[in-house]
Design a protein around this nucleic acid. Structure first.
Lengths: 214, 214
DNA sequence: TTTTGATGGATTGTATCCAATCTTATTTTT
DNA sequence: AAAAATAAGATTGGATACAATCCATCAAAA
């Protein structure tokens, strides 16, 4: 298998494939996902498909009804507003609780990521920026011992096309400047400020995105 | 089938059964849930078990690892603090957004529920109180058009033994007085106040519960 | 003694088959 | 002609069977 990431289970591959197809609009909102069709198309049996659909249901990408099957969920402007409002609060709480438990190693790693993102911007490498950005956000939350909220944050990021926000012109620069501000708050050991910065960071991204949509 | 609720699907029955077993500590935290065992015990094949475990994973009751299977997740004091903190915020937002879209019918229904709960208290009927309480909270959220947050609220309630909080002595009376205050805020058409009341209502319950635990 | 490597049993992952349910089109009834 | 009943096809739900993976145990080598 020369796939960039090799999953340990067929079901995981299938999940990733379908998720990607939903993000790229190959499967359109409202479209029915028929298990037999998918199985034939992906060359597997229906069993991994079924489990994949359950996982996608958890991520909020599809809806499953008993005896009726799965449908792709559409995302409206309001859904995006909701998503960013929730993310803003939840990630805010998480980093506030996380901060005091971050090691100096983590601090350095965060610094590195910011520098890498600066480079990604210069190279105009969107995919890498998205990855590093995601790493940055995840690492910033590492110290938080609350599990549910961290799981939710992860799901919200996975359950939504992460590159879309970065497609906004000049958004990446602003974004990374805000990351630097977060590092300052970290140095000042000010968890409340850090939380505010994260909240604003995400809300700003959300507003940019909703503006762009209409 | 004369079961109180007849589910349309075996998997749903299995899910309910296992969930109940986790709540009643029949399956203890950390315990492995072996599919074959469960299948034999419940007299079904492994397939509905697998899907049930996925649903419970989404609810946060079990953890599944590839090729390793499912484990019951334990709930610590900190988990409860987290749960109530999150619920407080999320339900708060939801009712604030919901309020202006509640009909006068909804208002009456809420009034009825409060009266029923008063009666449940007099009759010392815990189960009924829990049900009515759940109905009350759900109905209060009805007008909110944000879907994710409503789903989360539902999951948080389902994913945690709802009767536990009501076991606290004299908690039900206080609880229902707070419900009445919410109805007043509703009459005053003050969404912000309603939100505050709901937040306090839930936080109070959470604190009572954590106090009781230690 | 510690580490490495095999081996067998336990458990999960996947495929295939059949049954249950839904949907749609057609026929029957009013 | 409209509504209700019916039957056929499509699709999901569940059972069984087999393959892949993990894990504990023990043996062999360093």
């Amino acid at each position: 298998m020369k796939q960039s990431i090799d999953f340990t289970t067929l079901q995981e591959k299938v999940t990733a494939t379908i998720r990607e197809a939903i993000f790229t609009q190959t499967f359109k909102p409202g479209e029915r996902l028929i298990q037999d069709e998918l199985a034939a198309k992906l060359g597997v049996s229906r069993m991994p498909i079924r489990e994949a659909l359950r996982c996608l249901e958890r991520e909020g990408l599809v809806e499953m009804l008993p005896h009726k099957g799965a449908q792709v969920i559409g995302i409206s402007k309001e859904d995006i507003e909701e998503l960013y409002y929730l993310r803003s609060f939840l990630e805010g709480v998480t980093v506030q609780k996380s901060m005091n438990f971050l090691t100096s190693n983590d601090r350095e790693e965060l610094q590195h990521l910011v520098e890498k993102m600066d480079q990604d911007i210069r190279n105009n490498n969107l995919d890498l920026f998205v990855n590093h950005n995601q790493e940055f956000h995840t690492l910033l939350q590492k110290g938080c011992s609350w599990k549910k909220v961290k799981m939710l944050n992860k799901q919200f990021i996975e359950g939504y096309p992460a590159h879309v926000p970065s497609l906004i012109p000049h958004s990446m620069q602003v974004s990374n400047e805000e990351h630097k501000a977060m590092l300052e708050a970290l140095d000042q050991k000010d968890p409340v400020k850090l939380r505010q910065l994260v909240e604003l960071h995400i809300m700003r991204a959300g507003e940019k995105l909703t503006q762009l949509i209409e």
